[in-house]
Design a protein around this nucleic acid. Structure first.
Lengths: 339, 339
DNA sequence: TGACAAGATGTAAACGCTTTCATTACGCGT
DNA sequence: ACGCGTAATGAAAGCGTTTACATCTTGTCA
């Protein structure tokens, strides 16, 4: 297993009988060379199996053609969709995506950002705007363009949705169906502005309708199917059992449906359940899940567009709010008998 | 937004009144310095907010402390689990994970590998062993240690499971329940040795029991829930309807359950359905899905262990087969009335 | 045919770090 | 106080590119 036998510019230059500058140009600005020279260099490069060294290139040019993204977790269908699209769009633009995750830990996020920055990324993508000042300072001192996804602070570009409105949307849907005892299962709120905004939206819609959200009707759980199950079972034990449940993300709502199933509680007859995100699976559980469509793929493509624009010229780009919409399916209905 | 104001070794050296070599050592081999010098350098570095430049470091040392992984898709719960764990383990070892995906396209995989290699990765992780010779050549000529995941060619290290055995396991389970008309929904077999091995395992178990797998009982679909639904609906239209369905991955099996639900076909009474992977969701759909546990997380950690070992000394490591096991749940049962 | 502009190629200095080798400083025994 | 071995530090040469800037070819036009 030969070690580092990759040939360098020098080797190719020597083989083609030209200077390394010429070879460099043959690689990056072929139109500057005379046709026969270009041909000669290309032949030599091919013969030697030359591959440009991205690391050296980055050091010399200061441009890495790489965009870093820091996400809470890889284990989420919605982030996966967004990442997939980012990878696609960046690739099409000749850029590479560098992914780091931190499991919802602010210190981990700082470390991830630091690493990415040290890797010489040209642009940085973060999720949400809520993080320690130290992290923001780090980003700003690096002078690298940033764009936030989902939601974010107003002093940096952002491509997202109105999470508050998403919360309102689900809540209003349930209210319109006649529900008055509506409980909520959210993810951990600390360090998570998306979850907080959704919850606030729900609160706003509820209080606007004169409906209270008692503390007992709110439970914070892991952002996962089991999290949803746990949350649901807690709410089902309540003396004053709710008639409807909102999961602030679909995976939680799906967990809640599973728990009701396991307990023989009919959805939506005895319990209406709704989520937010409209992940692919939402349409395929039974009953199919009413949810709020969040255009994850589009967030990905628009984010890439923004970050590439910022890299090209460092003008500040504003906030982009993508449209969301309620998708009614079969997990929600009018409240049943009043117990 | 200041540009590249990151301070360099030179700045710190100047501020601390030492040479850049000393600063470099203060960063990487602090034990070589006298306590007071070290302190002085550290203070200067802190004052200037110095952060080492990973790119320069890589170029100078030839070590990038980065491992690249190329996966078919980010949009798969099982890969997500593995990646998550790889990220964790690598991080703990001071390494960074570089992820690229290619949507099951061999040309895309080649491009991804090429990019990763150009990025100066110290180690490479691939999924499966089935790819064009050109890709293997590229990898080998780079002299970078490789480890395959899930399954792979014997001339390179591999951490995986016996996919053939996994196929046998599900098939035998269904046979043991008394099924004789067993149909299979797989992912695309071309370029996917995991899928092929699982299918072969199923075939082997079937033929061993003297049961045929007619061509009509086999359908290739997308590796997704909708893929499973489509496959299932095709099989349900058959005149000689099967009594059991195997999805070679859980998401397909879950799609099949959804389709049966939608058509009012009782699972498992009228149709038994089983999968492979045992993703988290499998336990929470209804009926809960019988599946074969594939230790995705452990594949991640063992893979990292192997690749780091290979980076440390280039001795060839062999193949590791992780244990798998059947998890019986409620989606499978004895065949019902014979129609 | 000669001069010149434009185009093609070469030279060499970065980029920020690691690392080898040389040099200097230090502690100790006598 | 001297010399010596060792520990600490410095000088400088890369690592493989990019990119001014300098130099050398061309072709063109008077």
């Amino acid at each position: 297993m030969a070690r580092r036998q990759r040939s360098s510019l020098t080797d190719v230059a020597h083989a083609a009988g030209v200077s390394i500058a010429t070879v460099s140009r043959a690689m990056s600005q072929p139109e500057m060379l005379r046709a026969d020279t270009l041909e000669r260099v290309r032949a030599a490069a091919a013969r030697l199996g030359y591959r440009p060294d991205h690391v050296a290139r980055t050091l010399a040019s200061g441009k890495s053609h790489t965009v870093g993204v820091v996400i809470p977790t890889l284990n989420s269908p919605i982030f996966a969709d967004t990442l997939q699209e980012m990878q696609r769009s960046l690739d099409a633009a000749g850029y590479q995506l560098l992914v780091a995750s931190h499991e919802y830990d602010p210190a981990g996020e700082f470390a991830a950002v630091d690493k990415l920055l040290a890797h010489g990324i040209d642009g940085l993508v973060l999720v949400g705007g809520s993080r320690p000042e130290a992290t923001w300072k780090l980003v700003e001192s690096a002078g690298v363009p940033v764009v936030q996804m989902w939601c974010g602070r107003s002093d940096h570009a952002c491509v997202g949705v109105d999470n508050h409105a998403a919360g309102e949307l689900v809540a209003r849907h349930l209210l319109a169906l006649g529900h008055r005892r509506i409980a909520v299962i959210t993810g951990r709120l600390r360090h998570n502005d998306r979850q907080r905004a959704r919850l606030e939206g729900i609160r706003a819609a509820l209080s606007e309708a004169g409906v209270a959200l008692p503390a007992a009707y709110l439970t914070e759980q892991a952002l996962s199917v089991p999290g949803g199950r746990v949350g649901c079972s807690i709410l089902l034990e309540l003396a004053d059992r709710p008639t409807a449940l909102i999961g602030t993300v679909d995976v939680i709502a799906i967990g809640a449906i599973a728990e009701c199933h396991a307990r023989g509680i009919a959805v939506p007859e005895e319990m209406s359940i709704a989520g937010i995100d409209n992940i692919e699976l939402a349409a395929h559980v039974s009953p199919s899940l009413s949810s709020v469509e969040i255009p994850a793929t589009r967030i990905g493509s628009e984010t890439v567009e923004r970050v590439l624009a910022l890299i090209a010229d460092m003008t500040k780009a504003g906030h982009v709010m993508l449209p969301i919409e309620l998708v009614e399916r079969h997990s929600t209905g009018r409240p049943g008998e009043t117990r």
